[in-house]
Every structure is written in structure tokens, then in C-alpha cells.
């Protein structure tokens, strides 16, 4: 019997993996992909809770999350290309001038 608890657990694990991925990777695009992973994990949780409550609101929210994630990816990657053209490097560690 696959209860919603299973899905929630999976969602949690994926979310944490995505969060750690944001922290340890240096390539900006991979960081972006980790964020996408976190969003997907959240979507899974939403859908699971929708099923649990027996309503469709969770699915609606997941749908909107997808849309917004798409828009975010578009803009974010556009920024990335602009930065890459200027600096020839996609590492986020290169932007480190705002320090003590």
C-alpha cells in the first residue's frame, strides 16, 4: 500500500539533495538545475497532499509552480548567457568582489 507518507518522504529526500546541490556545485547551470530539483520535490509534495485531502487545489498549485519555474528558467538562463559572454566563465565563484 503506497501511502502518501511514502511520497512525502521521497519529496523530502529530493528536496534536501537539491539544497545540498545548490551549495556544493560551482557551475551556475548545475546550481540552477538543483533549484529545479527542489521545485519538483515541492510539486510532488503538493500533489500528494492534494490526494490526501481529496481536493484539487494542490494540483493547481503544482501547475502554477511549473509555469513560474519555466518563466524563471527562461530569465535565469538569459542572464547566464549574458554573464558568460562577458566573462567567459560559468563559475559562480568568480563573482566574489562584494567581500570584506
Amino acid at each position: 500500500m503506497v501511502s502518501p507518507a511514502h511520497f512525502i518522504a521521497l519529496s523530502v529526500i529530493l528536496f534536501v539533495i537539491g539544497a545540498v546541490g545548490v551549495l556544493v556545485r560551482r557551475n551556475a547551470i548545475v546550481i540552477f538545475m538543483s533549484v529545479e530539483l527542489m521545485l519538483n520535490a515541492a510539486n510532488l509534495a503538493f500533489v500528494t497532499f492534494a490526494r490526501m485531502h481529496g481536493t484539487l487545489d494542490g494540483q493547481i498549485i503544482a501547475f502554477f509552480v511549473m509555469v513560474v519555474a519555466a518563466a524563471e528558467v527562461v530569465v535565469g538562463l538569459a542572464i547566464l548567457t549574458a554573464i558568460f559572454r562577458a566573462r567567459r566563465s560559468a563559475s559562480v565563484d568568480d563573482a566574489n568582489l562584494m567581500k570584506y
Partner: peptide, 9 residues
């Protein structure tokens, strides 16, 4: 999916 996620990072 967990293995793929780990692999991804």
C-alpha cells in the same frame, strides 16, 4: 530518482 538526483549533484 534518488540515485539520479545524487548523481546529478
Amino acid at each position: 530518482s534518488v540515485a539520479a538526483a545524487l548523481g546529478m549533484i
